[in-house]
């Protein structure tokens, strides 16, 4: 009973708050979701203009060109997601280099990292010692920079997507596909380096324990599956990250849209739900970065010790 009362109280409070805001989404067919989750040739920056609180900055356009020998058109114009990837990259550089220097200095002076540097160090060490090294296996230190960069890049792209004027670059399939393709190449090169000619065994199924008829049969059946398996892994990585980030934003935006379309005391319900889903998004930002890194580590570890 107290729960119901609490819910009603919160609903009322939220509704009162919302009524104070000017209703902006008056137009009948305003799509607030698609522009938010897709790429664009302009960005919105914080600007003190009431009530939109942002200013649209148009990004320069570059003439497109065709990839040599193909019919693929390439548009190298810096888009909204490029800008937010750059912002994420610069944020990571700033924070991590600062933390690394602080760690180095504090290790020399007091013997261990403190405060913010200690937090970053704990994060880096957790990813390295609990995620990368155990999954990649022995001599996995060479993969640590790549996988750590993957983790921080995805994490900060996700986090900047939750930031009010921000945009989620990891909610763009081109970005996640590129990250997954890089992982794919790292995995395959790791396999070739670790197994040499035995790497072919990860594609062509040739089991010497079976008699020749069965062997050929299984070779014909399983080899395409093995080959397909190589590509499903990066494909799954691509779709998982893209879909998680996009879906989360669609849900949040749908709930925010409901606040304005209700225009009554009932707006409190989507308001509370939007807050809750945003909290969940914060968690998902970390979770998806973690999962991408974990799975990449697992794939690298698998191919390095695959002995068919």
């Amino acid at each position: 009973m107290t729960m119901t009362r609490l819910l009603r109280l919160l609903t009322t409070a939220a509704a009162l708050l919302l009524f104070a805001l000017p209703a902006q989404a008056q137009a009948a067919d305003v799509d607030i979701i698609t522009p938010h989750i897709t790429d664009a040739h302009e960005i919105e920056i914080p600007w003190p203009t009431w009530p939109t609180m942002h200013k649209v900055v148009h990004l320069p356009r570059v003439t497109t060109f065709m990839l040599p020998g193909t019919r693929i058109e390439v548009d190298m114009s810096p888009t909204k997601h490029v800008v937010w990837m750059l912002i994420a990259a610069l944020t990571i550089c700033g924070l991590l280099i600062f933390a690394a220097n602080a760690t180095n200095r504090q290790t020399r002076t007091v013997g261990h990292a403190k405060g913010f540097a200690g937090g970053i160090e704990a994060m880096v060490l957790y990813i390295r010692n609990e995620v990368i090294i155990p999954n990649v296996g022995h001599h996995g230190n060479g993969f640590v920079p790549f996988l750590l960069t993957l983790f921080f890049f995805i994490l900060f792209c996700n986090l900047w997507g939750i930031f009010p004027w921000g945009s989620t670059a990891t909610g763009n399939i081109a970005v996640t596909a590129t990250l997954a393709l890089m992982t794919f190449f790292v995995v395959e090169v790791a396999g070739i380096r670790a197994q040499g000619i035995g790497y072919l065994g990860t594609i062509f199924y040739w089991n010497k324990d079976l008699n020749i008829v069965l062997r050929v049969m299984l070779f014909l059946i399983l080899s395409p599956i093995e080959l397909l398996g190589k590509f499903t892994k990066p494909f799954a990585l691509t779709i998982r990250l893209f879909a998680n980030m996009t879906a989360g934003h669609i849900v949040v935006l749908a709930l925010i849209g409901m606040i304005f379309s209700f225009k009554s005391i009932a707006s409190g319900a989507p308001f509370l739900m939007a807050v809750a889903i945003n909290m969940l998004e914060l968690f998902v930002a970390f979770l998806q970065a973690f999962i991408f890194t974990l799975l990449s580590s697992v794939f690298i570890g698998q191919i390095r010790e695959a002995h068919h």
Partner: peptide, 15 residues
């Protein structure tokens, strides 16, 4: 978008 893929690659490698 291929352009964005190139950008991602460039930014990631730089990072």
């Amino acid at each position: 978008k291929v352009g964005l893929m190139f950008w991602t690659l460039i930014i990631f490698v730089f990072l």
